[in-house]
Design a protein around this nucleic acid. Sequence first.
RNA 1: GCGCCCGUAGCUCAGCUGGAUAGAGCAACGGACUUCUAAUCCGUAGGCCACAGGUUCGAAUCCUGUCGGGCGCACCA
Length: 583
Amino acid sequence: MNIFDTYAGALKDIITRLGEVGPFPKAIDLSNVTIEPPRDASHGDISTNIALVLTKQARMKPRDIADLVAAELGKIDGVDRGDVAGPGFINISLKANVIQSQVANILKADGQYGRSDVGNQEKVNVEYVSVNPTGPLHVGHCRGAIFGDALASLLDYTGYDVAREYYINDAGGQIDVLARSAYLRYAEALGQDIGEIPEGLYPGDYLIPVGKALADKYGEKWLDKMESEWILPIRKFATDAMMDMIRADLETLAIKHDVFFSELTLHDSGKIQVALDKLEAKGLLYTGVLEPPKGTKPDDWEMRPQTLFKSTDFGDDVDRAVQKSDGSWTYFAADVAYHYDKMERGFTSLIDVWGADHGGYVKRVESVIEALSDGKVSLDVRLCQMVKLLRDGTPVKMSKRSGSFITMRDIVDEVGKDVVRFIMLTRKNDASLDFDFARVTEQSKDNPVFYVQYAHARVHSVLRKAQAAFPALDMSKDSLAEARMSVFTDSSELSLIRNMMNWPRFVKSAALAREPHRIAYYLYELASEFHALWNKGNDNLDLRFIIEDDIEKTRARLALISAVRDIIASGLNILGVEPVTEM
RNA sequence: GCGCCCGUAGCUCAGCUGGAUAGAGCAACGGACUUCUAAUCCGUAGGCCACAGGUUCGAAUCCUGUCGGGCGCACCA
């Protein structure tokens, strides 16, 4: 329960009471009322627009309403006073002890301060990465992977029942290409001269060990055999090998998945047909001919009747094909079945994390979800924009042809997991992001990862020093929570506490908006407040955390910074960044 | 041609789903180290929130249009 909720309740009681005794109508819609900290700290601790919202319903001037409510607020326990300001805002100032005591609340929560139940244990499925198993993960995949992973953690932290999922695209034509490429390496491993890798096959060195493993397992069994004989077993073998590699890559970034879902199983089990039958039953499939697109017309365009899904019924631009010209299912058809399967497994909220280049695919999937669930299941597709790699300001050149693209592993090896994760979360997902190797490894406040980590490490540094100075001092959270919090009177201390009081609200809003980057920004600001307080101790010895001759004051200060530490650690954990205790 | 995303300080970006005088970092300038790690902090300066309308008590935020940038546009994945 955070403090804003507490006073929101009190405020509602006041409105109801005023409704019963006189001035206000009995039934009042409070849905647009906000109860939040004011932007400007001089406006008190809590600000509400309630008078402005009620002005129509109560048919009174905002300021008159505000005066009535403010007078009542002044009587509430813990409220110092309620002021009316501007057009009719009510600013509530809390008594100092209410603010101070929050430190104890944070410590007693034991790292769970900010955890909430807004998610109501709703079953939500977050799908991310979902890369073709045809090669190692490269930089482009990094961002979506980290975003999805952090978002899943954030939702888990806010009371959703989260499943993390990877959709393995192991059924398409590219897997045949993979199998042929692996077959070539297999022949090579058995001593054949394969020369240059032909255009259209995967040239990467990562397939060499796969070829060797194939040779070890099968010997010369597939040599000089027709492709139709070996393609299936080698597809399976190569796909498994690629997935092993991808899983290992993901592990270097601590990206977790609960389920790896194979597209192939949808084809093999007939689930695609089942899902399409559902659409058919709703009258949403038909055979038709698509118009060519208006702009640049494809050269090989030909009019042809196809089985189409009527996605235009749900706001899509054109209806979408579910069957290819050779009669096999389209990628979209499998995706229909996949999302249908998620619904069948009981998820009521689906989140897909894709690269921005798949933006044109969003509407048709949204359409399917709406059609199959009758609007009961929500789909939220989060698109991640590109990452521009830079080295000291100059773009890193990458060319697929020469094979000089940078892999996820390259990046992690160079700058470390924590840096990659944090930096990738310092932008909104739908804004492009610059990743400069020089800048992200810098040890200065220019580098947010470092800055936040440093604040956390600094707290631990003080705690170590304090224990040395006061060997008998009990520094457990329970003990610190009993400290004399009334020592916090300096504006920087109070400002720090107010900032921490905002943590639960931030987490909640970040979860509802599905924007984990807000956590990163919050942490940066909290770290900044902490560093500021630290430096005040340089000028004013009485503001230091450790006061040599005053164990009680020291105890309170340690309580304060332990609370900071708990929140930074919680936030970093959500982002998947390790809160280090020493640097 | 159509759809989606983005235009906020010189640069890179936040802005808590509509709140009060729009905020950080970098770069510029001026200050604070016999320290609980100055790996930090404090101060100054910098804005027609792309532009034009609309919605209302109130708009950077929502709606419409214009301009500028990114992505996508049968059967691939």
